[in-house]
Write a protein that binds this DNA or RNA. Structure first.
Length: 209
DNA sequence: TCATTAACACGGG
DNA sequence: CCCGTGTTAATGA
């Protein structure tokens, strides 16, 4: 069951024996939108790899600020979990379900063993690291070089791309929180973007054009 | 100049 | 009535 699901969601090649071990040690879990999957300061013992649905990674500030870092979806692994587990340390990001979905939890102890045993697993972990590093760089670029207008546009495009209807079902306040700014700013910029025919505003719902 | 905070009115569910 | 939205005014970085 698990191995078939993994093969469907992950196009890369995995060795037969690796798939068998995933079947044996992995556990299939469902999540629903809004679920807090991994909290800050949680000790990680397993790494989720996503079968379907969307998960978001959020960085928490000391004084109750927060910032959305990036989204993960089918074919992505939550490397944050693995990184912190490697150092027997605690998670410094929060992982929240953006939509309903399913993932497979792989115990960290097995993942370490697989690194030595299976070239395909090594390749998968390294390329996942690469993807996340690139992602983090674009997050930094965005923060450093874009004003709030540009950041909001990027955010909207990113979120819309994840949903089939190209729309965003969030309140201005939720967007403001994820971008670590105030609602006034979001409302104002959204209104400007509407006048530019970039989007249409509704209650709890934004449609990109 | 642009973000933040507080405050208020409007309107739909 | 409550919540999300649109807007303004004062203040600050």
């Amino acid at each position: 069951m698990i191995r078939e699901r993994i093969q469907l969601a992950y196009p890369e090649y995995f060795e037969e024996n690796l798939l068998q071990e995933m079947e044996q040690f992995g556990s299939l879990q469902k999540f629903t939108a809004g679920d807090l999957l991994i909290d800050v300061n949680m000790l990680i013992q397993a790494m989720p790899i996503i079968l379907n649905g969307i998960i978001k990674i959020i960085r928490d500030d000391a004084n109750d600020g927060e910032l959305l870092l990036y989204f993960l979806q089918q074919g992505d692994a939550c490397l944050m979990s693995y990184m912190s587990s490697q150092h027997d340390t605690y998670s410094d990001t929060r992982t929240v379900a953006e939509t309903d979905g399913e993932f497979v939890m792989l115990p960290v102890s097995m993942m370490d063993e697989w690194l030595g045993k299976y070239p395909s697993w090594r390749k998968f972990v390294l390329s996942s690291y690469n993807k996340r590093l690139d992602e983090m760089l674009s997050v930094i670029d965005n923060l450093a070089f874009n004003d709030m207008n540009g950041r909001l546009k990027n955010y909207l495009i990113e979120v819309a791309a994840l949903h089939p209807q190209k729309s965003i079902t969030k309140t201005h306040q939720e967007i403001a929180t994820e971008m670590n700014t105030s609602r006034v700013v979001i409302s104002r910029i959204l209104k400007i973007l509407e006048k530019e025919n970039f989007l249409v505003l509704n209650r709890n719902y934004i449609k990109l054009l």
